[in-house]
Design a protein around this nucleic acid. Structure first.
Length: 501
RNA sequence: GGCCCCAUCGUUUAGCGGCCUAGGACGCUGCCCUCUCACGGCAGUAGCGCGGGUUCAAAUCCCGCUGGGGUCACCA
């Protein structure tokens, strides 16, 4: 009969240590990002430490590419870590694939203390035993090798078998207080002695995850809800490590709700909105994405949902995380991102636009003086008009393009009045004699010529002019855009349009 | 199937026994502002899954039901 004897961590303040420990399979997922975010925010809130380690113990599924993407993701999002990948720390190395010897030692100690034992039965044999004993096959292993005789052991070895190693689980209910869900109890016998090391010595996640948390001194484990049912197993392992002198406490656990996709399905990797880099490519800014993700399961107050990362860090507490699953809503995410974009310092906003304009081919690698000038004049005009940064390409493109490159959108053309040509001709005429080609005087001249002169409604008067210079229905404010383009270019575009209409 | 988790507007979230004829945000609708689109402003739309308790009083506590989800690997 074995029982839990290990104490739970007493850490409550700056002695708290959390970690983010993804396994590098596939491209970073927004659910993964939210888990990292809550861990990071909790560390920053409490003044504790945030550890970043990689769980690459499955060589069949892990990839170096994914590893680099995860590191890049955290860097881009600005979630810094105190210990771990690249930055190092007292518990190196931080990639499990490089910690084999450490696990070996732990396994030896656990064997010596009698907490883990050799198991020779194959999956087929276990199933056969269950069938033979009238036990439901899905119950799995029956712990029958707990006290294997030396004779049986020798016989298996003589057959050339290699043993897996299983943890002897405590014969009692296992209760813990989940940081987001409260007290949870798993009845004794909920799970059998489980494999922690494969035949041949390969340690499994079931072993290495708690081992590393224990060795690294992790006090608070905040992770996805999918790991909830493995928690009692981990507590059992912690207890074994405690009794073997490897761990000094059991951490506290907090299971974060899922991020769901359409329907009632967990947002899967197949789902495009799960892909972090797709959001980045569309022009989500870290502030916007993180703000939105934080809202999935948490809120800063009853009547506010736009907040900065530092406000998040000041106010975050796992205890306030909502336990129910949240759906990823692209529209709301877009709205939050748009709000965060508007909050950006104008020069910062301008700088962030450049990569998007470059990758779309609107700007080259090096900006000319003229291009810099256009950008700095036009960026402020679109800061409150776009939702994601990539929209700047369509909004600003015409300011950088030559007349011949301008693409006239069908929807812009189709919305034009019959007399569009006449209106544009009148506009050209009015502007040709304008000395001072600035926003105000342009507006005054066009109003006089088109609204007063031709008797057109403003909407009808300026629409054709807008399309003539930009090819688009939606642009930054018209008169400002004209000032940026300059008189010669504007007249050129108006005349070209007038000729074809 | 066993075990575990979850349950407030379409979505997200506030609510932790009386402040709730349930608040905010996104979405949607209408109006205002207006050179387009936005921004901003105003108004509207819509919710406590069901049934029992406990209580003077329940969205809030308890039980049951229903519904969803997760997990039961020599994956992580």
């Amino acid at each position: 009969m074995s029982l839990i004897t290990a104490p739970v961590t007493s850490a409550t303040g700056s002695d708290i240590k959390v970690r983010f420990c993804p396994s590098p399979t596939g491209t970073p997922h927004v659910g993964l990002v939210r888990t990292a975010l809550f861990n990071w925010a909790y560390a920053r809130k409490t003044g504790g430490k945030f550890v970043f380690r990689i769980e690459d113990t499955d060589s069949a599924r892990d990839s170096e590419e994914s590893y680099h993407q995860i590191v890049e993701a955290l860097r881009w999002l600005g979630m810094d870590w105190d210990e771990g990948i690249d930055v190092g720390g007292p518990n190196e190395p931080y990639r499990q694939s490089q910690r084999g010897e450490i696990y070996q030692e732990v396994v030896e100690k656990l064997k010596a203390s009698g907490h883990i034992y050799e198991s020779y039965l194959s999956a087929e044999e276990i199933e056969a035993r269950n069938l033979a004993n009238g036990r439901a096959p899905q119950l799995g292993y029956d712990n029958s090798e707990r006290d294997l005789s030396e004779a049986d052991r020798q016989r298996y070895i003589a057959e050339g078998r290699q043993p897996a190693l299983r943890l002897r689980v405590p014969d009692q209910d296992i209760t813990f207080t989940d940081l987001v869900r409260g007290e949870i109890t798993f009845p004794a016998g909920s799970f059998p002695d489980f494999v922690v090391v494969r035949p041949g010595g390969q340690p499994l996640y079931t072993l290495v995850n708690p081992v590393d948390d224990a060795l690294m001194g992790v006090t608070h484990v905040l992770r996805g809800e999918d790991l909830l049912s493995s928690t009692p197993r981990q507590i059992a392992l912690y207890n074994a490590m405690y009794e073997a002198g490897i761990a000094s406490f059991i951490p506290r656990f907090g299971h974060l709700p899922f991020v769901m996709g359409e329907g009632n399905k967990k947002l899967s990797k197949r789902n495009p909105e799960s892909n972090l880099f797709l959001h980045r490519d569309r022009g989500f800014i870290p502030e916007g994405l993180l703000n939105y993700l934080a809202l999935l399961g948490w809120s800063i107050s009853a009547d506010r949902d736009i907040f900065s990362l530092s406000e998040l860090c000041e106010n975050f507490d796992v205890a306030n995380v909502n336990p129910n699953p949240a759906r990823f809503d692209q529209k709301k995410a877009d709205a939050i991102n748009a709000a965060q974009i508007r909050l950006l310092d104008p020069s910062d906003f301008e700088a962030r636009l450049i990569p998007y304009l470059q990758s779309a081919g609107v700007l080259g690698k090096q900006l000319s003086e003229r291009e810099k000038e256009i950008l700095s004049m036009s960026a402020p005009l679109i800061q409150e008009r776009i939702t994601v940064l990539s929209e700047a390409v369509g909004m600003l493109g015409f300011l950088f393009e030559e007349l011949e490159q301008i693409h006239f959108e069908p929807e812009a053309l189709s919305g034009l009045p019959e007399n569009a040509g006449d209106i544009v001709r009148a506009a050209a005429l009015a502007l040709a004699s304008l000395e001072d080609f600035t926003t105000d005087s342009i507006q005054a001249a066009l109003s006089t010529a088109l609204v007063d002169g031709l008797g057109e409604k403003p909407r009808n008067a300026f629409g054709p002019v807008r399309v003539a210079i930009s090819g688009r229905r939606v642009t930054p404010p018209l008169f400002e855009s004209m000032e940026i383009l300059g008189k010669a270019e504007v007249l050129k575009r108006l005349e070209a349009f007038a000729q074809s209409h």
